[in-house]
């Protein structure tokens, strides 16, 4: 049997089993907390009670299974610390996801809308929106997501622009934190952190290294580590068995593919 010519559907079956079996029969791997995740945790931990952060849901629904657990962990921690939240979104689908997530956590944490949190929602043309928030939040968003006048929210009476914001956290599956860094960070001096899908980690590490990004956590593994710091199990932790076995399956497939390739080349 020529291994290189195997029907790709067999590979699909292997990948599916590598994901499904550990979910059905979990062994509870979580792994160590990386220094990066610890930095993010410390950053939020160091914010004073009553400080305000902007959490921007700059992601699409497609990546939510990966980035949702990151967002859950960060929002939960922020609310545990009594930090006030302004929610925004510069990608349309993140708008509904962010609204639901913040509303649910606010209910659980007894956060009062308008006083402890507001959800401003979507803005197209993110560069203009990011710059606009630096001038005046209520001018940029005259109404919140559910069409209430922003001026009616006591939170926005006290927090007028980036000057009054302790940190911006961009929950992103793409390059949006780059615009936060280039337009909000560089121009207005606000601190930026990012909760990223794993695929964006290598893109943003240079910004972490240069100090333009205060902290970043990436992917389901980052969420699992953060959940561990919060002392609970969540979607991130639950996914780690499957993540491990699926990685191993792909690594084995790549090795088999290479062995078959070199043997074939040796023969020819």
């Amino acid at each position: 049997m020529n291994l290189a010519q195997i029907d790709r559907r067999w590979i699909f079956v292997i990948v599916f089993l590598a994901v499904a079996l550990p979910l059905l029969f979990p062994i509870g791997l979580v792994g160590e907390v990386s220094p990066r995740t610890q930095t993010m945790h410390d950053l939020i931990e160091a914010l004073p009670r009553g400080a305000t952060v902007i959490i921007s849901f700059d992601c699409e629904a497609a990546s939510w299974p990966e980035i949702g657990p990151v967002a859950e962990a960060l929002v939960e921690h922020t609310m545990q610390r009594g930090i006030r939240i302004i929610g925004t979104s510069f990608l349309s689908e993140g708008t509904a996801l962010g609204f639901e997530l913040l509303s649910r956590h606010a209910d659980a944490a007894d956060y009062v809308q308008g006083r402890d949190w507001v959800y401003l929602g979507f803005r197209p043309q993110y560069v203009a929106a990011i710059l606009g928030l630096g001038e005046s939040i209520t001018q940029e968003y005259p109404r919140d997501y559910i069409n209430q006048p922003s001026e009616d929210h006591t939170l926005l009476g006290a927090v007028r622009s980036y000057r009054d914001v302790a940190l911006v956290i961009s929950i992103a599956d793409d390059t949006m934190p780059q615009y936060w860094i280039e337009y909000a960070g560089a121009r207005y001096g606000v601190k930026i952190a990012a909760g990223l899908s794993a695929v964006m980690v290598t893109t943003f590490t240079p910004y972490l290294d240069s100090g333009q990004l205060q902290a970043l956590i990436g992917g389901l593994k980052g969420a699992a580590e953060y959940e561990r710091l919060l002392g609970r199990e969540g979607a991130g932790s639950r996914g780690m068995d499957a993540q491990s076995s699926a990685h191993l399956a792909i690594i084995v497939l790549v090795i088999i593919g290479n062995v078959a390739y070199f043997r074939g080349r040796g023969r020819s």
Binding site: I11, I14, V15, I250, L253, V254, G257, N258
Partner: peptide, 16 residues
């Protein structure tokens, strides 16, 4: 999530 299958298949066939 379909991409997980395709990326695995591509890695097996093309990652040499």
């Amino acid at each position: 999530s379909l991409l997980a299958f395709f990326v695995a298949s591509a890695a097996y066939r093309g990652f040499r």
